[in-house]
Design a protein around this nucleic acid. Sequence first.
RNA 1: GGAUCCGUAGCUCAGUUGGUUAGAGCGUUGCAUUGACAUUGCAAAGGUCACUGGUUCGAGUCCAGUCGGAUCCACCA
Length: 753
Amino acid sequence: MDKVYNHKKTEEKIYKTWEEKGYFASTIDKEKEPFSIILPPPNANAPLHFGHAMYVIEDILIRFHRMKGSPTLWLAGADHAGFETQFVFEKYLQKKGKSRFDFDRETLYKMIWDYVEKNRVVMENQLRKLGFSLDWTRKKFTLDRDIVKIVYKTFKKMHDDGLIYRGERLVNYCTHCGTSFSDLEVNHREQKDPLYYIKYGPLVIATVRPETKFGDTAVAVNPKDKRYQKYVGKTIEFDTLLGKRRLKVIADDVIDMKFGTGAAKVTPAHDEKDFEMGKRHNLAILKVIDFDGRLSEVAGKYKGLRVRQARKIVAEDMKKRGLIEKVDNDYIHAIETCYKCGTTIEPMLMPQWFIKMEPLAKPAIEVIKKEKIKFYPKRHEKALLWFLNNIKDWNISRQIVWGIRIPAWRCLECHPEPFYFAQGRLREGSSDSSTKPQNDSGEYWIITEGERPDKCSVCGSKKLEQDPDTFDTWFSSSQWPFATLMTTKSGDFEYFYPTTVMETGYDILRWWVARMIMVGLYVTKKVPFENVVLHGLVKDPLGKKMSKSKGNIVDPLELVEQYGADAVRFALVFGTSLGNDQSLSYPRLEAARKFINKLWNIARFINMKKGDVFLNSSTLLRVGSVKDLDSSALPKNDIVVLNNLAKNKTDKEWVAKTEKLIEEITCDIEEYNFNFASEKLYEFIWHQFADFYVEDVKKRINGNSFLILNCLFLILLKLLHPFTPFVTEEIYQKFNPPAGGGESIMKELWPDE
RNA sequence: GGAUCCGUAGCUCAGUUGGUUAGAGCGUUGCAUUGACAUUGCAAAGGUCACUGGUUCGAGUCCAGUCGGAUCCACCA
């Protein structure tokens, strides 16, 4: 054995053997309770980041339960990550001086597909480098035909059950990315903007968005506001940049008397609150901003200006014309921004497919309250319940090509649509911004399970066109636990579903976990998983969130190269409690590496002394793996055997200490306290076992005690194996050369079994 | 505006249902050693557990509030 453990010499070789021998592949044994985890599928568009290294928690659980003798399944997979991937790909195109508009839909899709295929292979090999014992024979991709089929089916079922509707309302739209988003994809940011007090004839209203004033279709005041009661119901006339205008004054409760002057302009096309007011008061909708983020013809000579520019110019012109009474330059308010590119989100009126969430959320709340699903740490449960209790309908339409195209067809004869988007762009002449869009309630749409309908069910026309939009990627993700298991091997779904544990970062609790629970319950009538284990974020060494824009990304694979996968794994669970964020710590990585080296050297010592005494490797092996040592005594487990074997008082003590350790480690892992388990192993192996017991046994090396030392060490190896699989396997192999028969530590049973 | 998390040794953090002298890693200081250990072992220094009150026989741990840091949620123009 080398003087120092060299991970570079061992890790790749060991993983290859494991995979080749099929140790990761699950088998169904109906006599036993399964333990299953579906890997949160990493995005197939980029190499792994540090968050993915936290899958180590899942690997610990899987390896632990595998050694406990349960049939385990850890299902590998990858996510097409719709918008995220298209975004990444567009950047890639940009570097080559191209844009997505240079290609037709099919070509673009094909290009992204190839790009993703390449990245996916890279990503999967990275998972291997981290030692993850994933069942690769069952790996799935969210765009696999059979998965897509299930996604279609779910959509159709939801539609038939009345849970899907074509919503004609304001949606979050990013004019830069060219797509709408759900509420979750929108960030809020505080910002200081000038608050303009604009003269509206006898009234003055305050706004930060003078550029949208062309789309005003009313002025609103609070019905209780005595100052303005005389105007309510009247029409006022006033000067604007585009000549005189007349607007009705309406009274509505949402108007805050204390804000500004207590009077507000109403722009239903570009503000959620105004849109709602518009519906209540039957106001016209004037669309000022187009999908490209520029002012429409409604803005007259300001047409074509970008929103920001327009705001400045309009405000300047108003000042010149004396239309502005005053400006408050210290006004701080929250704006909505695109979570991806940071552009200010424009609420836009456009028909989209929505899911009614309340009927889905209710059963989810039930199962959580009844603890059919448990959360670790518990505190995240509250956040989730809050989300479920205040849930809003989910916009699942995205104006992108990368994803699963929505299986909805529209008849061109009896239902010509006002809006049509081709890759995020408005088709020429299809929009009339000055009128309300034509009704698109969805009743003319034909929804299928993916197949193209022959003809329109209303008029019989064959002129049908599929909705160009694709599903929000989370719509397919929400079905991942059952969609995967239904399409892997026969019997998988019946046996492994619901899965035992869903382990993921708390940051996607609402995006993913909540939706899996809701959709899983809806489709399968069962919870998709029984336990939700949530880990924290891995931040940079200074405690800042890692992000590409900050340039503080640390590649986990580089650290694997430097410290070894075992050390990286150990460092991630050592000294951090589950669910808390942690900063990447180089000293901790170094400590983990040294610990692994310490373990290696204990093994080296034992290996060296082994030749001097009566033991040979096959005796060791048999004692080490216990089962056939003393068949007459029918040993229950390692400890029972050792208790019989130990003669010396000190040896007996150490057997007892180890027995206690086994209990504690088992308990800690079962309760997801990985920090306790790893810290105890560290302390015991180094500062108990090595510092005292090994030293003690050195004095009486030629006796029974050395055998006990050996056996206890093999127990420690097993306890450590879920955390540091490579080094424990390598040592195990050194102790059990193939001739001796010890196949792999992965085949060993947990010491208490 | 609402919610959550954090504030413990110089640094990064543990501290599991409240219970004896508050722990680890790294760093610092001294001694020993190349003997399984590109080291390791032994020993030492270093903490009013943010602050203030409360509950309790007993609080880093529970409760209330204050200050400081972070995150999430939120339609007030």
